[in-house]
Simulated assay, not measured.
Amino acid sequence: GDARTARDLQRSPLRALRVTGRPTDGRFEATLALGAAEGGAAAREVKVKLAPALKKNPLAFRRPVAFYRLARALGAHVVPAAAARRIGIGELASLIGRDPAARKLLRRFAVMNDGTVDALVLAPAPGPPGPRWAAPRRRSIRFDDAPELDVWARWARSPSPARGERAPILRDYLEVLALDYLAGNGLRKEIVIDVGAGALSLEANASAFPLHVRARELDRQLERLVEAARFPRALRDALARFGPEEAAAALRPGGIEEELVPPRALVELEERRQALLSLIETKVADRGEDAVLSL
């Protein structure tokens, strides 16, 4: 499952790196050898995204990992697996090879005292209903003005299945709103549609768990959640179980030495969890559990 995928991202040997996007962004397509630790010759190579920490923001990798761990803890299916791994600067230089644009990046990496660099590693897709390691046939839409969002919001407002409604997309849409709201992520720019699987994916999550959430930044997510008439039962149940201890275990797995978010973010996460759970329970009290938790 997702836990195994995250372990593969952390531990599977790297075979190659290729610069993607603008060279100054420090993003790579990496080739992982799955199963190499057990058999070597039987290893299967897969493509993932890799972003070494840069001097200008050496801890940026923590936010996407925290967002994925929040999604996993709540059983949400819209976030590709993410993990942090440490890579020796010598290994990075060897993998980059002689590509001049990539070699310039070596001077920008945030190198630790032990000669390693923290790197964010991302799977290409969230997994079922689509394949976990295959890059999806994707289409990006803007979060603020895409017509699809208005269609999904109309489905969510309907107290019963709307004409043309696609339940998997609607469940994903509500997961998107809930995760961004819980993580204080009011700066969502885009959502990816996996055209083949008929699913949504959140792949750019660096704005999750900001140090400060400005007033009204979460209005889009909260307004759409307030308007929604139906929710996934699994989401409500997961929210009810996800208290402060569970949040600390997910986002501070090794205590202060391994915290992915600052303590204040955990306090705010709990406040928003209680608010969202109260919102859903109020709707349940008004219309009944079977009517509201019907997705």
Rank of each mutant, 00 (worst) to 15 (best):
T5R: 14
R11Y: 04
R11D: 08
S12V: 04
S12D: 14
L14K: 08
L14A: 09
R15G: 14
A16Q: 14
L17R: 13
L17F: 08
V19K: 11
G26P: 12
A33W: 03
G39Q: 12
A41D: 15
K47Q: 13
K47G: 00
P52Y: 01
P52N: 03
K55G: 00
L59E: 13
R63C: 06
R69P: 13
G75Y: 01
A76E: 07
A82G: 10
A83Y: 02
A83I: 05
R85T: 05
G88P: 09
I89T: 15
D99Q: 12
R107Y: 00
T116W: 01
V117M: 05
V117Q: 11
V117I: 07
L120G: 04
A123H: 06
P129G: 03
P129D: 07
R132H: 09
W133E: 08
S140R: 14
R142S: 15
R142I: 02
A146T: 11
A153Y: 02
R157N: 07
S158F: 05
P159D: 07
P159A: 01
P161V: 13
L170M: 08
L170I: 12
R171H: 00
D172P: 11
E175G: 04
E175V: 06
G184T: 04
G184V: 08
G186R: 10
R188N: 15
V195I: 11
V195R: 14
A197V: 03
S201R: 11
L202N: 10
A204C: 01
N205E: 09
A208K: 07
P210Y: 02
L218W: 06
L218D: 02
R224Q: 14
A229P: 08
A234I: 01
A238C: 10
R241K: 15
R241A: 13
F242S: 06
F242R: 14
P244T: 12
E246Q: 15
A247K: 02
A248V: 06
E258P: 00
E259H: 03
E268M: 05
L277R: 15
S278I: 00
K283I: 02
D286M: 02
R287E: 11
E289R: 15
E289H: 03
S294K: 05
S294Y: 02
S294R: 12
